[in-house]
Write a protein that binds this DNA or RNA. Structure first.
Lengths: 294, 294
DNA sequence: ACCGTCCTGTGCATGGGCGCACAGAAGACC
DNA sequence: GGTCTTCTGTGCGCCCATGCACAGGACGGT
């Protein structure tokens, strides 16, 4: 059963009873309608209509087609209105992806967004690999740094996350607290293993301390944080995660040059939709109140 | 939502994930698929797919279309197989029409046919007007005489119904019984009112007896029969309805020249179907055993 | 009985959709 | 890294579906 347009033509003929009426509704010439019917009947090997000079009357097969196509037309009409409307409504899925380190900043934003728009189902994806917006894997991505982006992605700066040098109390008890970066000799540090890391504070650390002083290295950000908190050495933590935390001592306060820029990335096609726009506004508004960010 | 073919194209793209794959399944060039998608998205004002070099991935709207079109394709496939199969199977409606006078001959035929093919629903229509086969009002018509027919109707002789001259017992008691047609003087007759009636015996009667002898005339065959049975006069009855009936006396036995030919009429399109062919065979077979017919 | 209207049906010319070919890009595999 | 494959995307030329015009037939009203 190929060629759905011919079914639609036959449907209108069966509904209206005349070729001319169907042609007018369909916006085509009545000769086209006749040809569609002929082709469809020839392919089916059965008569759909009894032809006479005053119109076409549906046979039993034609009435069967009528009822089936009737529901089809209704289904398509509903589908059309859903799709046409969905770009203008804030509903359906909203897929957000980000690095894992800011999950506790983003989660309340997404929860309040979902409360504001109950028709939205939020999916929050964090994974090692970067999700590809042009594959439709996510509507909105929050990413760190300023890496290269796909040409069809629209990028907006969100905020800057301050980072400082911190140590755990057990480390301070054993090795003391350096007064400044001139006092780093003999101290142990925690740093990202990947030399190509984009984080500005890690590049600063590698440039400042001797490689032998890096006592603990890891690739996973969560592992680095865990190492610092357990006293493996002095290391960078996001200020919003370190300030006020019991057992965490500030070694050097955050500096502007250490701050990690966060950027919002969306695909250009989805960027225009009301749903994404609503979330972007909600996110930017919430980010203004984030502690230790600018 | 016009142009159902584009929906079908988008459906295959959503199902297979690539334009090329959809093009192969649809049997068209992949450029055509791209144009269909573009046109559909432009008309809907929303993106159905995220395009990338390895294929198309459906957006939420695309997945919605996928599920709707999925059921549509199944519905159409079922419809197609139903229509393709119905020409070969003996099922569905069978509409039979005839003059009312032979209903008691036809009814057992249709009942046994319905018992033989339980999937058939029989509708038997009798009405003053002749039903038009080219309007699809009936599959099979059993008609009397040899009137003109539509060009697309196929006509087959069925049998000849013998008619004789009969009188009711009350009439015989009052007016006696003529020995032959030479003895008709002083007798009263029942005849069809319409002078143009096609029945051969009525034309014979009008040519044989004086107009004043026609004591009772009616247009409706059932009214004529009723008049004869109630003693209004001598009149023609179908032999199968008169022979053996209590209170009915034979005036003149049936003659070959008085017999009414019955013919089967079907529309050429429906004539070829197995259902109609099965009924025609069943009808002809039954007609061989009809009493007082040839 | 005639005419008007509306319908189907068909030959012919045109235009739009289709296939073709090629370019470009991105994975896949060695 | 290099090559092969696969897929998207676009300009061009052609062909088929479409629109057009007209003929023919049926029904209704005057």
């Amino acid at each position: 059963m190929e060629n759905w347009d011919e079914i639609r033509t036959a449907f209108q003929v069966a509904r209206l009873g005349t070729v001319s009426g169907a042609a007018e509704v369909l916006g085509v010439h009545h000769a086209t309608v006749i040809r569609h019917i002929d082709a469809l009947e020839r392919r089916l090997g059965a008569k759909l209509f009894q032809r006479h000079a005053r119109g076409y009357t549906a046979t039993e097969a034609g009435r069967d087609l009528l009822s089936v196509a009737q529901t089809t037309e209704e289904q398509f009409a509903h589908l059309s209105s859903r799709i046409k409307g969905q770009g203008e409504t804030v509903s359906g899925e909203l897929v957000v992806t980000s690095i894992a380190g800011i999950a506790d900043l983003l989660t309340p934003v997404m929860v309040s967004f979902q409360e504001k728009w109950p028709d939205v189902r939020v999916r929050f994806l964090t994974d090692m690999r970067v999700f590809r917006l042009d594959y439709g894997e996510a509507h909105v991505a929050i990413r760190a740094g300023s890496g290269p982006e796909e040409p069809d992605n629209v990028v907006q700066p969100l905020t800057r996350i301050s980072s400082g040098l911190y140590a755990a109390q057990p480390y301070v008890d054993r090795f003391g607290l350096p007064a400044s970066e001139a006092d780093f000799a003999g101290h142990r540090f925690v740093c990202a293993d990947n030399e190509m890391t984009r984080a500005p504070f890690h590049r600063w650390l590698r440039a400042t301390v001797h490689p032998d002083q890096i006592a603990y290295a890891a690739t996973e950000p969560a592992a680095l944080e865990s190492a610092v908190l357990q006293g493996a050495g002095i290391g960078f933590l996001s200020a919003f995660r370190a300030v006020g935390r019991v057992g965490v001592v500030e070694v050097l306060p955050p500096r502007e040059e250490w701050a990690s820029p966060l950027r919002i990335v969306t695909h250009v096609d989805l960027h225009r939709t009301r749903k994404v726009q609503a979330f972007l506004a909600h996110l930017k508004d919430a980010a203004k109140d984030w502690p230790h960010c600018s």
